[in-house]
């Protein structure tokens, strides 16, 4: 039977600075989820939901998505692992309800992505939802997942990105969370390389200690410097700082603007390499400048005319 989907078609390449986890079983959380202004919310059917409430969470998720207007906030659902009896029904509910995307928990290889992809397609056909509408992302939670990051993010055209999940990952590496993040430096770096090589987005893990704002801020700044697109969050208080940190600065925007404008002029004159403010620039600079302008627009901080 055909389901009526109320949400606009999901975009793979949208802004996702903040992805906030919400327990799909808690009506008060689901109801208010979009008010806080995170770019995406992740309604959780997995760890936040007790084993004997998995069915209740699915009913709750389905009706919330049918009835609540989440506006511009992207709605992703974290489904239960492929080693549980729940994931197939989770996928049917996500698709029937019109979720924008599905987060595959504990993803370790491309085959897992393909299994989910096929189940999603089957559900799209079953419910008369446009085939290919529902996006996917992978949570990498083990060393094997990190090692296979590239094959994972290229396993389906639905994949928009991957995220590292620190809790499980640290346990499997026999390390604790450290000031400065040295315990996950290699994993974060490898995942970022894989994501950029595949042209998808990359997200850092949530910061577990909600009362330690200083530690949280340090981690967000490092995430931004390393090249992440965004971060998983567990508390609305964490949203604002991430949005501030990930928005381009006025200086970056002004320079990008100058580059874009000058490059157009130089290209018209048939010149490839030239200098702006005394620094050599060429085509890759131009592409990056365009990215910064696009990001500034998406963040609502661009007021120029490009």
């Amino acid at each position: 039977m055909t389901k009526e989907i109320h949400r606009p078609r999901p975009e793979k390449d949208r802004l996702r600075r903040t992805m906030m986890f919400m327990n799909a079983q808690k009506p008060a959380l689901i109801r208010d989820a979009y008010i806080y202004g995170s770019d995406s919310i992740i309604l959780d059917l997995e760890d936040a939901v007790a084993e004997n409430q998995k069915d209740a969470a699915r009913f709750s998720l389905y009706h919330a998505l049918q009835e609540i207007d989440y506006g511009d906030t992207e709605v992703i659902v974290r489904i239960n692992g492929l080693d549980t009896p729940h994931w197939q029904e989770d996928i049917r509910v996500c698709v029937a309800a019109g979720a924008d995307g599905i987060r595959i928990a504990k993803c370790e290889n491309a085959e897992m992505v393909r299994i989910v992809d096929q189940a999603v397609e089957k559900a799209e056909i079953e419910f008369g939802v446009e085939v290919g509408r529902t996006l996917l992302m992978a949570a990498l939670e083990s060393p094997l997942g990190i090692m296979n990051a590239y094959e994972i993010v290229t396993a389906s055209p639905r994949m928009f990105g991957c995220a590292i999940s620190g809790g499980d990952f640290r346990k499997s590496m026999h390390v604790q969370i450290e000031d400065g993040g040295i315990e996950m430096l290699a994993a974060r770096g490898q995942m970022l390389l894989a994501a950029r090589a595949a042209g998808v987005q990359c997200f850092d893990t949530m910061y577990p200690n909600v009362d330690d704002m200083e530690g949280f801020k340090k981690e967000v700044i490092q995430n931004h410097k390393m090249g992440f697109d965004g971060k998983s969050l567990i508390n609305p208080r964490q949203i604002e700082f991430v949005h501030e940190t990930f928005a381009p600065t006025e200086k970056e925007i002004a320079y990008a603007e100058k580059l874009v404008l000058s490059c157009q002029a130089q290209a018209d004159a048939g010149i490839g390499v030239y200098t702006v403010d005394g620094k050599m620039v060429d085509i890759p600079f131009f592409e990056d400048a365009k990215r910064i302008i696009k990001l500034a627009k998406a963040c609502g901080v661009y007021h120029g005319e490009l």
Partner: peptide, 13 residues
């Protein structure tokens, strides 16, 4: 103080 969608979900469940 449940929304309609919550009432529906709980009855169905």
């Amino acid at each position: 103080g449940a929304l309609d969608c919550t009432i529906k979900a709980r009855v169905e469940c």
